[in-house]
Write a protein that binds this DNA or RNA. Structure first.
Lengths: 108, 108
DNA sequence: GAGAGTACATCGCGTGGCAAGGTAATCGCT
DNA sequence: AGCGATTACCTTGCCACGCGATGTACTCTC
């Protein structure tokens, strides 16, 4: 099953999705993608280009912090952790989504 | 109150919103914008550039049909009517929205 | 006659998802 | 030993589209 999420809904929500996966624990990029895929029962998995550009954006905005894992054996993994600002941004985005969702229900 | 709908949610949904306003009756561009504004209690009114480019897109895709009103006194008005394909597209988009909405609820 | 409201339209910018392509290590299978 | 699949990272370039800015033209009110 491919992604049932239209690109225009991904756009503007992928950052929030990623933050969501990091609330529970630090994760590395590839793991984030798989976590999202699992959470949507395979309905949507972010493309790599989308994932990494979002992560760069989040880091630039200070919403996540990155560090290299030291397993050093096998693929080197870059882990991401939410910052306090990231937690706040996630809560704000989620609230905005709830609001917009009800608006759209009346408009579509 | 300005638009509480983030551009990324407008994107990909404006076409469906417009189709929605045309289900009841034919309308002209400006009227469509005001109808949407009213339906959202002023929370969102599409910008003109957005409105007209969407209408051109809808027309190119055969989802609406345009004709000039003959009031000819005052501002000339260009009316739009949904086609059968437009009705089908609206129903499909709305169903897709319902599906995506529940997906996002789990992912955000 | 000035300003606000109605009504149409276009141009150019910036954002951001994604296809395509690249590198490199590990594991399983034959 | 050799090879594909999987894990894991990253970049470049295309294109769709909302929106700010701007322009035209008519009508109505003060």
């Amino acid at each position: 099953m491919a992604d049932a999420l239209p690109p225009d809904l991904v756009r503007g929500n992928i950052d929030t999705m990623i933050l969501r996966t990091l609330l529970r624990q630090d994760r590395y990029g590839y793991e984030i993608a798989k976590t999202i895929a699992a959470a949507s029962s395979g309905a949507y998995e972010p493309k790599e280009a989308t994932l990494y550009s979002s992560l760069r954006r989040l880091e630039a905005n200070g919403l996540v912090r990155a560090y290299w894992g030291d397993e050093s054996l096998g693929g080197r993994r870059k882990y991401y952790a939410v910052t306090d600002a990231g937690r706040r941004a996630h809560a704000a985005s989620k609230a905005a989504w709830e609001h917009a969702k009800h608006l759209l229900d009346d408009l579509l």
